[in-house]
Simulated scan of single mutants.
Amino acid sequence: MAGKIILKKQAEKRLLAGHPWIFAGEIASEQVSEGPGAIVDVFSSAQKFCGRGYWNPQSQIRVRLLTLKPETVDEDFFFQRIRQCWDYRKRIGYTDNCRLVFAEADQLPGLIVDKFGDIVVIQTLALGMDRWKSAIVAAIQDILHPAGIYERNDAPVRELEGLPQVKGFLSQPFPTTFQIRENGLSFWVDVANGQKTGYFLDQHMNRQAIAPFVKDAEILEAFCYTGSFTCHAAAFGARHVTAIDASADALQLARQNAALNGVATSCSFVEANAFDVLKQWAAEKRSYDVVMLDPPAFAKSRQQIQSAITGYKEINLRALKMIRPGGFLITSSCTNLIPADLFLQIIRQAAADAKRQIRQVLFHTQPPDHPIVWTIESTAYLKFLIVQVQ
């Protein structure tokens, strides 16, 4: 029998609007006999059924809803959900590389599944989801028949759920560094040691979108990681790309990716802290036709939002100072705690401080294999902006 959670008065409003989280402070009563990760039924203060999900008394997010119906949560439940995810991706044209499961946006909170060709990488980032890992793996094997499955559960966020950081094979071992194709180019992916699940699939449409702005351009790129934007820019006819990253391992793959795509002579890679280099080169009055910025998330918690705002403003201010009149700033943020309107405000303030006039040319978010649910703010996380600088 499922445990029972009774909410405080009015606490169900967000659930009924479509957000699956219940915080500890919203609960009036917890009647759960099983341990952390147990499936529980959630009721309003008026004893109306609100949904069913998993419970973790060690987390501030006490319950994450899996369904608004009183349906059985078992192995078949996860099979059907993952099959729905795959059917949706196939329908929108994503059959090779894609985010197969995007957590809350796919009604599977705490679960990330990325598909790289016939290799699948999973993350179970919450305790309740981690308890169903074997069912999830079995469903993936039955539905996709992948050549291999790897878990990247070395994310620090798991510690907030009382979970250890682990990574490794969930299938027979396979080579964890391999090539994928994107926009007609080839890239090495390292699913064992790369960031997140090994490659940032969410920028693939935006990497294609830079084509008109980089042709014949001299480009500075900061936070280049393994060179996906770098190689796209060079392949699209950039005169030269100077790409900066602090990770020697990432730059090694970036150089290999440039060679793989026949653009090595158009690219140079610099191992350095991007903040330091942008500050120094702006002070030296170096100039470029295009500056590209694709930094990692600057805030993992609400306490870090102000420092993230400061960080975004600083790197974009330095970049704007180095762009030749008529050139372009191509800039991104993947911090879900910085909404789009705030990100655009940061760029506007950076331009004012840099004494540069800008005009928006293009604004994108993430691709459709990372669907956005309007009532779940965290699903709308990627901001991609191109502005022309006068």
Results as ranks from 00 to 15, higher is better:
T375I: 06
A340G: 10
N273S: 13
D276E: 15
E284N: 13
D276F: 05
I338D: 01
V361Y: 04
D341L: 07
V277L: 14
T310F: 05
H370M: 02
V291G: 08
I315R: 04
W281Y: 13
L317K: 06
R348E: 15
P371Y: 11
S301G: 02
Q280W: 03
R286D: 10
F363A: 12
D276V: 08
F343Q: 02
R302S: 00
A308Y: 06
K355R: 12
F275V: 00
W281C: 12
Q360H: 09
G327Y: 06
F363S: 11
E377S: 08
S378Y: 01
T331D: 06
Q357K: 13
E284S: 14
A350D: 04
S301I: 05
S332E: 08
A352W: 02
R356V: 10
A282K: 09
T375C: 04
R318Q: 15
Y312E: 00
S378D: 15
P368N: 15
F363Y: 15
I338E: 01
K355N: 13
I372D: 12
F298V: 06
I376A: 00
K313M: 11
Q366I: 10
A282C: 10
I346G: 06
S378N: 12
E271R: 15
F328K: 14
K285V: 04
A272K: 00
P325W: 01
Q349T: 11
R318L: 05
Q304H: 06
R356P: 05
L293M: 11
I346P: 01
V291Y: 08
